[in-house]
């Protein structure tokens, strides 16, 4: 790599790619490990299409909500099965494409995976290994600009997961406060908070305006989203873990590994 970047002629001659001695590699290493584990887990769960619903407890895996094909277990399709038999693969794939697109184009996740997976750069002031760099100016990364569309398309999903949680509380005409319902509601709330803290949401809400004074309601909305937006990274992680755990919980209950503890 001699001759480019920090080794370019004219710059201070220093052999090391970085002189940082703190553990700069720790953050990308954690991101890499957790994201990889999640991708493997969720891919298996999405294609597997087994133990996704506990009919007894009305617990549906968030990866399968809403469940739209005839393959769905009975009682799991709150929106009906408009897709019918047309889609031969797991019904999760129809839905997961939205949160997948939303997170792949998310400004925070972009930062995280550009650093951890693409090493561009691995950490600040650590020279990246690539000799060429064009950023997000051309195919395929220019499609990161579609983020706002994924925002709109995936916005209903946390609400539907919240509905699943409520459905588990009021199951078969009776009240039942189970741990599973709580797990789904926590996933729903954190996912919604993550969606609302989105940078595109902030822009749509009021960020694109130059005269806040002419739009008091949008200005108020913008200030609220701005507060959430400051926690966007934390919400990205919390909601990811929450939805991961919710699916795992449903898997355990549906596979009868343990019963859903409940009151009532």
């Amino acid at each position: 790599m001699a001759g480019t970047g920090v080794f370019s002629p004219g710059r201070a001659k220093i052999e090391a790619r970085t002189l940082r001695r703190d553990r700069w590699w720790l953050e990308p290493a954690i991101t890499f490990t957790v994201f990889t584990a999640f991708i493997i887990y969720s891919t298996i769960r999405a294609f597997w299409d087994v133990n996704i619903y506990s009919a007894e407890d009305h617990l549906l895996s968030p990866f399968y909500s809403p469940c739209l094909t005839n393959d769905c277990p009975e009682g799991a399709s709150h929106l009906g099965t408009p897709v019918g038999d047309w889609f031969p693969l797991s019904p999760a794939l129809l839905i997961l494409i939205l949160p997948l697109g939303f997170r792949m184009t998310c400004y925070y996740y972009r930062k995280a995976y550009y650093r951890a997976f693409w090493l561009s750069p691995p950490a600040c002031a650590v020279a990246e290994p690539h000799t060429k760099y064009t950023g997000e100016t051309r195919f395929p990364l220019i499609f990161q600009n579609a983020h706002r569309w994924f925002f709109w398309l995936s916005l209903p999903l946390p609400i539907l997961i919240g509905y699943d949680g409520i459905d588990a509380i009021y199951a078969d005409g009776e009240w039942k406060f189970g741990l599973g319902a709580l797990v789904l509601l926590v996933a729903a709330v954190t996912l919604l908070a993550y969606s609302l803290s989105c940078h595109s949401c902030r822009h749509i809400m009021g960020g694109r305006l130059n005269h806040f004074s002419k739009h008091p309601i949008r200005y108020w909305g913008w200030t609220q989203v701005t507060k959430l937006n400051g926690k966007h990274m934390q919400l990205a992680w919390i909601s990811l873990i929450a939805v991961w755990f919710a699916d795992f919980y449903v898997l355990m209950v549906a596979a009868d590994v343990f019963g859903d503890p409940h009151i009532g």
């Binding site: 972009r110 930062k111 650093r115 561009s120 750069p121 950023g135 997000e136 990364l141 220019i142």
Partner: peptide
């Protein structure tokens, strides 16, 4: 060149 920035946030750091 705004599109070249991949928002990896070192500037902010």
């Amino acid at each position: 060149g705004l599109g070249m920035c991949n928002i990896t946030k070192c500037c902010t750091e």
